[in-house]
Design a protein around this nucleic acid. Structure first.
Lengths: 125, 125
DNA sequence: GGTTATTTGTTCGTATGTATG
DNA sequence: GCATACATACGAACAAATAAC
């Protein structure tokens, strides 16, 4: 079994710094992170994910620009108290659902077929 | 209304040449392309999608490596007679379903929630 | 029959963004 | 912050197959 504390990089594609930022959004959406929580330092997270520290800095910078986190010099990086979390889970779920619906429709699949395929693969993950 | 002859680029993310290759796979899966069919020339498709002709060449090159198409200098690019089409629709649908299942699980959503979200957005597309 | 023009794929170099050290 | 390596996308010039003259 692999470790599972919320921090991972097993997503399929895209820039690493975006995957990390997305991961933070997901952890916020499912309550694994809440306002006031302290994020790992750039060096520590970089070591855990085996990536360059600058990549973490880049990801945190994007999250700061999104208004999700704030950096406190000498203390670390924290989830902002006014971070937008309400309804974020449903927003992200709807986004993923829209992408799946779009791909299914491009394959000329009905919603019944799409649901059937989803049920088939749900347990496999 | 936008034109809809099967060729488009409105997918969310990823390299352009991969989006084009994926589009060809989808058209093959739903029967919009069949073995022996002629694909648009690199220049024509590039003009239609407003991208560089070399980007199309790159996408076609990947499809050729996949054994799906073949190029004939001076004639054009064609779907190979022995292109694998059987079951391709289900394969691609399962791939998309797996991606959606993965994202839903990372948000701590149940399969019921995932199906509900899918139903909600199905008509919106 | 040979030459030209058009269409097509092929190949070179260049610029930008990402990841690394 | 800077230098290097890699992938992606772009641009222009090249070579082959076909049709028309």
């Amino acid at each position: 079994m692999t470790e599972h504390d919320g921090w991972s990089l097993d997503m399929s594609s895209g820039p690493i710094f975006e995957q990390i930022a997305k991961n933070v959004h997901q952890m916020l959406a499912r309550g694994a992170l809440t306002p006031g929580d302290k994020l790992p330092s750039a060096r520590e997270l970089a070591a855990r994910l085996s990536v360059n520290p600058n990549t973490i800095v880049h990801a945190y910078g994007q999250l700061e620009a999104d208004g999700v986190i704030e950096k406190r010099r000498g203390l670390g990086t924290f989830v902002r108290e006014d971070a937008p979390v309400t309804g974020m889970k449903h927003e992200m779920l709807h986004g993923a659902a829209s992408a799946y619906a779009e791909e299914s429709r491009q394959l000329d699949a009905s919603i019944q077929e799409a649901i059937a395929a989803l049920k088939e693969v749900w347990d496999a993950g």
